[in-house]
Amino acid sequence: MNKPDTPTLAPQPGLPTPAASWHDRKGLVQIGLLALLLLAPLAAHLLGHVYYVNLASRVTLVAMAAVGLNLAIGYGGMVSFGHAAYFGLGGYVAGISAYHAFDFTPVIAWPIAIPGSDSMLAIWLAALVLCGLLALVIGAISLRTTGVYFIMITLAFAQMMYYFANSWPTYGGEDGLPIYLRNSLPWVDTNDALTFFLICFAGLVLSLALTSRIMKSRFGAALTMARLNDTRLATAGIAPYPVRLVAFVISAMITGLAGALYADLNGFVSPTMLSWHMSGELMVIVILGGVGRLYGPLAGAILFVMMETLLGGLTEYWKLFLGLVLLFVVLFAKHGVMGWLAGRERHE
């Protein structure tokens, strides 16, 4: 029997424990991933390969979108199969705003006139607000369900957005909407591939830092408890529903911001960004990287885009191989690339 008067059994603070060295390994892997993501496009830029700089931007943005999704799935236990709705909405905010700025026509004329803008800052703000509001509505309804129903209802909402965008001719319908001139920021040239990459990189780092910080806070503690045991949370006196809803909204805002940048990267936004394939891709990235691991989305995005680029160049059936890798991860490496590289996550 453990008696309370045996304090020697308690872990000694300050001594190097296995947990501490594990922590170092995780830190090294995280820094390594960020360094890889930062140095590869720098090298490509020096060698004059703009294509690879843009590819790094693509990795960065899908990683950022997946960071948002990971907050819902990994940290909140809310398996959203509809995050393309926010990714795409962010993209359309960038596209539509640029379209009207180009045309000098208002986005909305009534009840108040809202002009288009080619300012990224204005676009990001609008994307954050609109994605937040959309997630508030979708989340408020979807979070009344759990499990498979939640998956299906989030998918259904995203599909509604998809069909709506497809059938709305003003903004290109199924052909999509080009962004002729990349939206702008004060003092920097967003048309420069490396500059644009650095903007994306900053966005990713910020969303990682934000997620990390949030998950260490009281809100994060409540969200973790909502995922692990919502009965315990309610028994303590904290209603799980609003905690989940707020996390869902933050998650959607991160994904939406990534979407706005993604449209600017491609100079184009189309209903594809809203399609269930997109939702699935983000989910695959989260699972590949390691569900609920802070850097999982980055590891997953690097692996995903590399497979897409390398195998996609060899065969159009590359998704078959992606499927095999995914199957392997789900069956044998449940903690994803991060679990494999950095060891299993431990809770305090």
């Binding site: 910080r213 949030i214 260490k216 009281r218 809100f219 503690a221 409540a222 315990r232 303590a236 904290i238």
Partner: peptide, 25 residues
């Protein structure tokens, strides 16, 4: 989670501040 963390969530609930996003617990 650790025993401590399970009890801390109750303390947090008692204090009524669960929508705090910044300070680490």
């Amino acid at each position: 989670l650790s025993v401590k963390r399970n009890v801390m969530i109750a303390v947090q609930a008692l204090q009524g501040h669960s929508f705090r996003f910044w300070k680490p617990v």
